[in-house]
Amino acid sequence: MIVLLFRLLILAALVMLVYTIVQYFRNPDRKLQIAKETNIFYMVDDASNSKKNIQFVYKRCLFEGEKYIGATEDAFEVVDIHIFARDANELEGITRDDLYFIEKELLIRYPHAAITWKYPINKLILTTID
């Protein structure tokens, strides 16, 4: 009887170990960190949940966007997105063309959204091109 109980305990421990490993590899924060280290564009977004913020990495800079719902002609959709950088020091090297690329990617997913950049990114958008 004790041997059978011990085997069940080992089986339960193995199932928990496999579950933990799968959850580790599916973690979106880990994927964002990998994208930041490899210098690629990666976005974590739950389009069906309007209360969950958008997180994305571009050129080793982590951005976050707050989604706001509003009425369009046909339905209630995301009509406003406020984007800010988690760490302003990571913005070094980001150009105006990079911000336009990010806006284009967001507008593909949310075509009715108006994108607002928060400080200090909005200073780059507002300056004139010489």
Rank of each mutant, 00 (worst) to 15 (best):
D46P: 06
I102E: 01
I94E: 02
N27T: 09
Y42L: 05
E66W: 00
A88E: 15
D29Q: 14
A47H: 10
P120Y: 06
V44M: 09
I54G: 04
E77R: 14
K36Q: 15
R96E: 12
I40G: 05
Q23G: 02
K31H: 11
E64D: 02
L91Q: 12
A114F: 04
T127A: 11
I125M: 12
I21T: 07
N122W: 00
Y110D: 06
D98W: 05
H82S: 12
A75N: 13
L106I: 05
V3S: 04
Q55N: 08
V78D: 06
D87C: 09
I2M: 04
Y58E: 04
I40K: 09
A71W: 08
N122S: 12
A85V: 12
A35F: 07
A47N: 08
E103A: 11
W117L: 11
I108V: 13
K31I: 14
F25Y: 14
Y68F: 14
D45P: 02
L126Y: 05
K31C: 09
R60S: 15
K123V: 10
M43F: 02
F84I: 10
L32N: 07
F63N: 08
R30Y: 14
Y100L: 15
T38E: 14
L32Q: 04
Y68S: 15
N27D: 15
T72G: 13
K59L: 09
K52Q: 15
N39E: 15
I94G: 08
A88M: 08
I54A: 12
A71G: 01
R96Y: 15
N39Y: 15
L62A: 08
L14K: 01
P111C: 11
K59M: 11
V15G: 04
A113T: 05
A35P: 02
Y58A: 02
L14M: 11
Y119N: 13
G65W: 00
